[in-house]
Nucleic acid binder design. Structure first.
Lengths: 268, 268
DNA sequence: TAGTGGTCTAGACCACTGG
DNA sequence: CAGTGGTCTAGACCACTAA
């Protein structure tokens, strides 16, 4: 019966009331919200409406539900987050599509003697592919690359099309191991003379180094790559978008409304 | 009545059936799915169950709903995406917390004469702050920084705590302009001699340059920053996690099940 | 075993869209 | 205006958790 009773669905009002109560500390993080039945009684609404409200809280990351237990308060504030999205990883590798690779060397090297740190047993021998990447039109290479593949998957390096398809996706196809996480480290380096000559730049010139670790969904690092790019032939750009904890419905405005809302009856 | 009738809720089965039909091309992208009423009849289920199924499709980005129109097929496949999450931007700036800034110079410069490309009128004068950033313990600077602030917000550069709080968050506090997007460009550079002396490295030594553009939720670039870091004192690392189009419920496994599922009656 | 959230039904009315 | 999805109800049974 409040003045603010616009056309908003009641479950929005309930979600607001609850999220504000959480914000105020009425329901501290870690505790359980009232049960659905209790909320039905408090607000005088049906269970489905209450559940819809709670679903919004869950989508925002404010609460979580566990069957048989209850609805737990997870955080006090809606966490805003900037996210970078990479569709199909191919964004990292936009250039993969537009470039050609040339493999120069294939060997097995113990982890301890690799050019990049490899996890696990230092004596474990990883399959290593070394090569260059060229743009379609230009002659000069844009990257010198080393790819280390965990021994279990070394077989993929025999693939006919290894020059065209990223190794990690070959592993995915052949072994069903999927990258659940990619760690990436970017640094500026001085290009060592052996690499410099391959890249056709002068020794000690400036380069950008990108190291990527591919972590399977089981947490195992199954591939590590390193690229060195001449500074003026490559730069790394990315875009971060503001998003909400669990981006789904419920935009910001819907949350930040004047206090006096409540659906119909909220005697409590 | 199929053999696969595990304990899965029916709306999962419906969502599978629909997403597979989309995948098969039965419902091409851009067309409308059958109406909820039709689906109720086809599957012999209640409207709420059907709606729950469609909600899953929407969460996956496969479909979208419009009141008064229908449910539109948006894509044929579930788009997988790697995302980098930055809570509160402070992850980019982990070091902001642990470092101190020292402002060396404050001036107004026309866009055309800045060290980084600035959007808009080349004669527009941006407020520029130049300074260094130090780690708490070390004496040597880890970055030389230029911050360009759009003239409308130049006033924030007078703030007392401008050394401690990132400028863009001052703008957010004072003017309510929020960064909805951050573009970031990372490159390796050779450090110019004037900057080198400030950073106490030798001229032409290797550095990592990071340029960030802060774009407001209205699409306006209101701040641009540039940092140059000595190569051995800074590197940029990030983590990308595999996620689904509209990460919510509905994990991958729930989608990739053997074909013969259907709830109970699907005579069609 | 009692109590929680998870699923499901059969109905109802409303708000929006398009002809 | 007819038809769509959006909201809401009152009731039911189930699956899970903890005591």
């Amino acid at each position: 019966m409040s003045l603010f009773e616009a056309k908003r669905p009641r479950y929005h009002a309930v979600a607001d009331a609850l999220s504000q109560a959480i914000q105020r500390g009425t329901y501290p993080v870690g505790t359980l919200l009232p049960t659905e039945a209790e909320l039905c009684a408090q607000f005088g609404l049906s269970r489905q409406t209450i559940r819809e409200a709670i679903r919004l809280l869950v989508d925002l990351g404010l609460a979580s539900r566990r069957q048989g237990v209850g609805t737990r308060v997870e955080r006090r504030d809606v966490s805003q987050t900037y996210v970078q999205r990479l569709e199909q990883v191919s964004d990292i590798w936009q250039y993969v599509e537009e470039t050609t690779r040339k493999v120069l060397k294939v060997t097995d090297v113990p982890a301890a003697r690799s050019r990049v740190p490899l996890p696990g047993d230092p004596d474990r021998r990883w399959r290593m592919l070394e090569g260059l990447r060229f743009t379609a039109d230009e002659r000069r290479p844009i990257a010198w690359t080393q790819v280390y593949v965990a021994p279990e998957y070394a077989a993929v390096t025999d693939a006919k099309n290894r020059d065209r398809v990223p190794i990690f996706s070959l592993i995915e196809q052949r072994f069903g191991v999927k990258a659940g996480r990619i760690r990436q480290d970017i640094a500026a380096v001085s290009i060592a003379s052996d690499v410099a000559s391959l890249l056709r730049v002068s020794p000690k010139s400036v380069g950008l180094s990108v190291v990527r670790e591919y972590v399977s969904t089981q947490g195992e690092v199954f591939e590590v790559t390193m690229s060195v790019h001449p500074a003026n032939r490559y730069h790394y750009s990315m875009q971060l978008d503001l998003a909400y904890a669990n981006e789904s419905a419920f935009t910001a405005e819907r949350l930040t409304l004047p206090a006096g809302l409540r659906g119909s009856s909220s005697k409590k």
